[in-house]
């Protein structure tokens, strides 16, 4: 019986340009340079071109892209967070408190919130690292929702009113370019990090933690470092948004900040960071365009989430990458 099988072969131009020293045509140079340069150029130009409303959309897209990348990074070490809102909220509150109550200037309180927020999240979650499986997800889901309730019930840090009157950014360009640079930096830094020896060890922890432990590496310490890195990125987002809105309150722990990054990373494709980036740039503007449907937003994200995780777990980015690097053809095989 004859059957068909899909065969995938690297495109000639990919094979030729894989070796950096042998780029010998303008076309090959473009082939290598366009994928990394395109997002950089687009992001650098967009703040200048967009009307002010869409500039805000760009800002929140970047924030969600950052959160998605920080989520993706944790998944790469084997930790599935259902609560990026924890990182976001902690960063937001630290920024709000240090700016409004301690009176620190904006350029000092954001770095403080970033580092301190990352550290607090790592310390809060470190005890869970001793257990495999769903515990991490359960605890990360519960913590931000609980903190939200506690702030609401106890009235701490402004309670339901929140803290308002926080110093805004001097102008919208500073705002846009700060987040654009942060996003691009995180994108390339994360992509670089996972290919280093350090990143390799982190990935190995996900694949086979006991094997990593058996060569003398303290996996809890490594995972805590990963939490800190991811926490810093999340906390930075929180601190940044606090200054954009001039306000921090209970919504900082809202489910949106947990779900949208998750959906973005899954839809875009896990494990590549570019996927998270792409996913956020699809989902966030889409939800803005569909603002009319209001509450259906979360339903839509969740639907994408479930659909992609079940039917297309590799995500959009991997698909595009494959098309870019390989061509496919059907070949007949004997069965």
């Amino acid at each position: 019986m004859k059957q068909r099988r899909k065969e995938r072969i690297d495109r000639g131009i990919k094979a030729r340009s894989d070796d950096v020293f042998s780029l010998n045509s303008f076309r090959e140079m473009l082939y290598v340079a366009v994928p990394p340069l395109a997002p950089v150029l687009i992001l650098l130009i967009l703040p200048l071109e967009l009307p002010s409303y869409w500039q805000k959309v760009l800002v929140s897209t970047c924030v969600f892209a950052l959160l998605a990348m920080s989520w993706d990074f944790l998944v790469g070490v084997g930790m599935v967070s259902l609560g990026q809102a924890l990182f976001f909220g902690v960063g937001a509150y630290i920024a709000g408190i240090s700016n409004k109550i301690l009176g620190l200037p904006i350029w000092i309180d954001i770095p403080i919130a970033t580092v301190l927020g990352g550290a607090i999240c790592a310390v809060l979650l470190t005890p869970v690292l001793r257990l495999r499986g769903v515990y991490f997800s359960m605890v990360t889901l519960v913590l931000p929702l609980m903190l939200e309730r506690i702030v609401e019930a106890s009235g701490a840090f402004g309670g339901t009113e929140g803290i308002s009157g926080i110093t805004p950014f001097p102008n919208s360009y500073t705002e846009s370019y700060l987040i654009v640079f942060a996003t691009l930096f995180a994108l390339f830094a994360f992509r670089r990090l996972v290919t280093t020896d350090y990143g390799l060890v982190l990935k190995a922890i996900k694949d086979n933690d006991r094997a990593v432990m058996s060569v003398g590496i303290n996996i809890y310490w490594m995972k805590a470092q990963a939490l800190f890195i991811s926490g810093c990125v999340g906390a930075f987002c929180g601190a940044f948004i606090t200054h954009v809105y001039g306000f921090v309150g209970m919504p900082s722990f809202a489910l949106d900040y947990s779900i949208l990054p998750l959906s973005s990373a899954v839809v875009g494709g896990m494990g590549t960071f570019a996927g998270s980036f792409l996913g956020a740039f699809i989902l966030v503007p889409l939800s803005e365009a569909l603002r009319g449907i209001g509450g259906l937003r979360i339903v839509l994200y969740s639907f994408f989430l479930v659909f992609f995780i079940v039917a297309l777990p590799e995500g959009i980015f991997h698909y595009i990458q494959r098309k870019y690097q390989q061509f496919e053809r059907w070949v007949e095989v004997d069965k």
Binding site: D197, Y198, L200, V201, A204, A211, V215, G216, I217, N218
Partner: peptide, 12 residues
């Protein structure tokens, strides 16, 4: 060979 990076990265 990249598999050996893990033991080589060991503090030992």
């Amino acid at each position: 060979f990249k598999n050996l990076i893990i033991p080589l990265y060991s503090p030992r």
